[in-house]
Computed example of a mutant assay.
Amino acid sequence: MPKIVDHEARRAELARAVWRVVQREGVAAVSVRATAQEAGWSPGTVQHYFSTRDQMLEFAMETAIAAGAGRVEPLLADDAHADGDPVTAAVGILESLAPLDGDSRVATELWVAFLARVLVDERARAIENRGADELADECRRLVTSLCHPPDDEQIEFEAVRLHALLDGVSLMAVTRPGRMPPERVREILRRHVAQIASGPAPAGSRPHGVRTAVSGPRGRSR
């Protein structure tokens, strides 16, 4: 009887091998040969699934986006996580997306490496935009839970501001870790969420007509 191969599981295994290479040596070290060695496969077998380095990085980025959503889901489902406090819940979710542990840090490093390609590569742009849209939706959901009474213009503005803040601290955390260590990331997120929950910004301090969100990690697994 022929052996049944789960090709999606094998692709996911390779994506995790890419993650480990990135975590240990950085994105520049990713190659078909390095990934094959990390996974314990032959280069020819790896190329059966991904013929180029770019294809591996793209799939690893997609996996990171999905992993980020996977980290958020149990926090949404666990009512005891925040004891019913939306501020605590929001901080917990944002911390799960920030580069504060191995997986989320790798996701952010992949995102940073992807940013240059987004400018010139349509496939990379589509992957990054999908992750950014998911993060924008999550920021909007968190802000809606924090704003009382809810105001559509305030929610839209604060969601964009939260998204931009998370992108910024995540970028600094992986490119300038001495200036943005984990404890500072946590403090910035806590203070920002508390500020949103305390009420709208003073009149005239925020622009009108903000309707789009900037891109971000996904997941930012990321």
Rank of each mutant, 00 (worst) to 15 (best):
R11Y: 06
P150E: 09
L171A: 13
R117I: 00
A164E: 10
S215H: 10
L110W: 04
A201N: 04
P150V: 13
L115A: 06
S221K: 07
R191G: 15
A164M: 09
Q154R: 15
A98Q: 00
A89T: 02
R11P: 04
R179W: 12
A36I: 10
G209H: 04
A159L: 06
V160E: 13
V91C: 04
I155Q: 08
R33M: 12
A39W: 06
V87I: 14
I127A: 03
D137E: 14
A60G: 01
D103Q: 10
P182E: 10
R33W: 10
S104A: 11
A66S: 13
F50R: 02
T212F: 11
V118K: 03
V30H: 05
L75D: 07
L165K: 01
L57C: 07
G204C: 08
F59S: 07
R71T: 08
A36E: 02
L146K: 04
A89M: 11
D101T: 00
T108L: 00
R179Y: 12
A66G: 10
E158N: 06
R140L: 10
G84W: 03
T52K: 03
Q23H: 15
S205N: 06
K3F: 13
A173P: 08
V30C: 07
F114C: 10
W41A: 13
L75K: 10
P207M: 08
V174E: 00
I127L: 09
P149T: 09
R206M: 12
N129A: 15
A107S: 09
R176T: 13
P149R: 02
W19I: 03
G178V: 05
D85M: 01
E156N: 12
E122P: 01
E25H: 09
S51P: 02
T52N: 01
A159Y: 05
F157Q: 07
V5D: 04
D85E: 05
I127K: 07
D83S: 11
W41Q: 11
E138M: 15
S42Q: 13
R184D: 14
A64R: 08
A80P: 00
L135W: 04
N129M: 13
T88W: 02
T35G: 01
H48C: 05
A77P: 00
N129E: 15
D121Q: 02
V210T: 06
Y49D: 05
P182M: 10
G68W: 11
R176G: 07
V27W: 03
E134M: 10
D54T: 11
D101V: 00
C139K: 04
T45S: 12
V174H: 01
V46F: 01
